[in-house]
Computed example of a mutant assay.
Amino acid sequence: MSSWFRRKEKGIQTSTEEKKDTPKGLWYKSPTGKIIESEDLAENFWVSPEDDYHVRIGSKEYFQILFDDNNFKELDPNLSSKDPLKFEDTKKYSDRLKQAEKKTGLKDAVRTAVGKSMGKDLVIACMDFSFIGGSMGSVVGEKIARAIDYSIKKKLPFVMISKSGGARMMEAALSLMQLAKTSAMLAQLAEAKLPYISLCTDPTTGGTTASYAMLGDINIAEPGALIGFAGPRVVKEATGKDLPPDFQTSEFVLEHGFLDFIVHRRDLKRKINLYLDLVLNQPIRNEVES
């Protein structure tokens, strides 16, 4: 090899072991281009302070926000999906499940837990979009149904946090059956005169919207969340018409009567407990109790 391509003097060099890459995750850039340190973002309830953009978060973060001191007992933590239909498309469903579990550390697209929120026991089911798009399959439906059953047996309020792309196509009719199962369990919860608050976050779509997400005694949502059955592109293609501004945002849905309130994430814990106290005709709790 020609000496032209050889370095004659090494000069000052840093060994590979001593080189440090820029740590990942230190900064977050919102869709509007605002940049915030990840640590500051977490302290601000994962909301960008400059543009108020609500970053997508999962059950870990919502449990941290809603449960006192992040103390809770997870319900049915080991339920996991099978592949009864032996579904194959571009990839085996069983392989996708393994990959999603390894990537997220989750067993499926929902976690359920019981703990104290502002001093009183509360059951919460929260979906995780990171697990196959928060899709609803047999395990999601079963865990939600069991959580509602737990609420009935323990006489506790129930909160559902939805974040889903809809029914899980890889489970076909088995997934669609969960709409009826969860809705039937919510009917039993109502018969037991226990309150149910549904929180719609970005996105809440498909079979989730067509079942438990819209069946709350009080339906609330975070600002700017996408809420609907079919997505805007599908609706536009089906109707052949241009859609109104902010179509299917939580603000649009509120204006058209499908939501009761929009709640900023920093107020979520206080507002949910306020609504529960009102429904249960109990004395209103103060924030200091949280």
Rank of each mutant, 00 (worst) to 15 (best):
M1L: 05
K8G: 02
K10P: 01
G11C: 07
G11F: 09
I12M: 14
T16S: 14
K19F: 04
K20V: 13
D21R: 02
D21Y: 05
D21H: 04
S30V: 07
I35R: 09
S38K: 10
S38G: 12
D40F: 08
A42S: 15
V47K: 03
E50R: 09
D51M: 10
V55A: 08
G58F: 09
I65P: 05
L66W: 07
D68W: 04
D69E: 14
N70W: 00
K73M: 12
K73I: 12
E74T: 06
N78F: 11
D83P: 10
K86G: 11
K91N: 07
K91L: 11
D95K: 13
Q99E: 15
Q99A: 13
A100F: 06
E101W: 00
K103E: 14
K107Y: 03
D108N: 15
V110K: 14
T112Q: 03
A113G: 11
V114T: 08
K116Q: 11
K120R: 11
K120Q: 10
V123N: 03
C126L: 01
S130L: 03
S130M: 03
G137Q: 07
V140Q: 09
I144H: 00
D149C: 06
D149M: 08
K153F: 00
L156C: 02
K163E: 08
K163I: 00
S164Y: 11
G165Y: 03
G166K: 06
G166E: 05
E171L: 11
E171S: 07
L174W: 12
S175I: 10
S175A: 15
L176D: 14
A180S: 13
A180H: 11
T182H: 07
A184W: 08
A184C: 02
A184F: 13
A184K: 07
M185A: 06
Q188R: 11
Q188F: 00
A190C: 04
K193C: 03
L194F: 01
Y196N: 07
L199Y: 01
D202L: 01
D202G: 01
P203T: 12
T204R: 05
G207S: 11
T209D: 03
A210E: 14
A213P: 01
M214T: 14
L215T: 07
L215D: 06
I218K: 10
A221N: 10
P223W: 01
I227F: 13
A230T: 08
R233Y: 05
V234P: 00
V235Y: 01
K236A: 13
T239K: 11
G240P: 02
K241Q: 14
K241G: 04
D246H: 12
D246T: 07
F252E: 05
G257K: 09
D260F: 07
F261K: 15
I262L: 12
V263T: 15
D267I: 10
D267E: 12
D267A: 14
K271V: 07
K271P: 02
K271H: 09
V279L: 12
L280K: 11
